[in-house]
Amino acid sequence: MSVSSALYNTFFKRNSVFVGTVFAGAFAFGVGFDIGVTKFYDAWNKGKQWKDIRHKYVTEE
């Protein structure tokens, strides 16, 4: 069985599975994309944001 037919039988054959795949994929992409952009943004603005200077002012109890 080739890869494409395995792919078809796993994800595309039943509509319920297909829709579930789309929803799960959208959720996973949303989380991953957010993490990626945030990582870049924090690297670009290193040392400027509150989370970078917070340790200077917070007092642990």
Partner: peptide, 16 residues
Amino acid sequence: WSHKGVLDTFDHASIR
């Protein structure tokens, strides 16, 4: 300004 660029956040130490 430290926040001038399209990707730049405020400098929060400066805000403080």
